[in-house]
Design a protein around this nucleic acid. Structure first.
Lengths: 153, 153
DNA sequence: CCTAGATTGATATACGGCATAACATAATTG
DNA sequence: CAATTATGTTATGCCGTATATCAATCTAGG
């Protein structure tokens, strides 16, 4: 057998974590798509909705910080959620520049419903993963995420 | 303590694998950026270069299939690598429509160099991960990737 | 052999995520 | 109060990806 073959046909790429994260993310993204199929909901707006629901009155910029979304890009996303009737935007009391965001009833219902669907499809994908493996995977990913705010270039 | 708080301020999002894969992917993407800083190399062209280097004479479409890149999007990417002098494109002997792609010496040197840099920066990011954890993470991600070609909608 | 269908690369086009620059308004600090 | 900073906003661009369409070529069936 070929002894100089890293693995499949990926070459050194196969040893890179970044590549596998991107591919696995795409596969699990498919589960999201199936979970919300028939709607126009996307991952990023869903994430924002979840953060707002978990933090009633949160400001637009803060929500963006939590998710790593820049202010400029939040504007259209928040507009989208407001127009969908999922969130409510009103002037913040302590800061006349900022908006206090809150989830509407409709938004909460949608969040609950889609969360269930997504979890169901993700569980489908991980059907033959042991509970220990699923837990370990989440732990490892969270540890990586925690490594974001290091030194810049 | 608040007992109805999932975790941070993420809400149900925090229980979703897809979210954590995207965030972790972004963090590790930062390691890639630092590894190639000063150049214009991107993750996708790098991946293509690696696959071509590992499979001399591979056809454009096949390389795309391996990486999940569609034919239409491969064209510009391959052009880019050719113009950079990293790969060589010549008519395939067995199919006059197709191109046989091969890595140039310059491409191989670049691949080796950048692979080393990326590995170094990724290792930096995973500095306090045990070898067992690193191995486990790669294993779990590869298992997820293997679940791509299931039923469609 | 020769036509019908499939395959390969290519072009055009569009959308979503993300980045930077610049601006107005409001808050904060010295 | 003046200078600086923070917030939301607009404009703009790049990258990754998706679809539709096309020409050239290959492949299979009649």
């Amino acid at each position: 057998m070929d002894a100089d073959k890293t693995e499949e046909g990926l070459g050194p790429l196969d040893s890179l974590l970044g590549y596998h994260l991107r591919r696995a993310g795409s596969v699990v993204g498919g589960a999201f798509s199936r979970a919300v199929s028939g709607t126009t909901l996307r991952q990023v707006p869903f994430a924002i909705l979840s953060v707002i629901a978990a933090n009633p009155g949160i400001k637009q910029g803060t929500a963006g910080q939590i998710l790593g979304i820049q202010r400029a890009n939040m504007v259209a996303l928040i507009n989208e959620l407001v127009e969908a009737g999922y969130i409510d935007r009103q002037a913040a009391q302590d800061d006349r520049r900022a908006f206090a965001l809150a989830c509407t009833t409709k938004g909460q219902v949608a969040l609950d419903h889609f969360t269930g669907e997504i979890l169901r499809h993700e569980a489908d994908l991980l059907a033959d993963f042991s509970p220990a493996d699923r837990k370990k995977l989440m732990q490892l990913l969270r540890r990586i995420e925690a490594r974001e705010p290091s030194e810049a270039d």
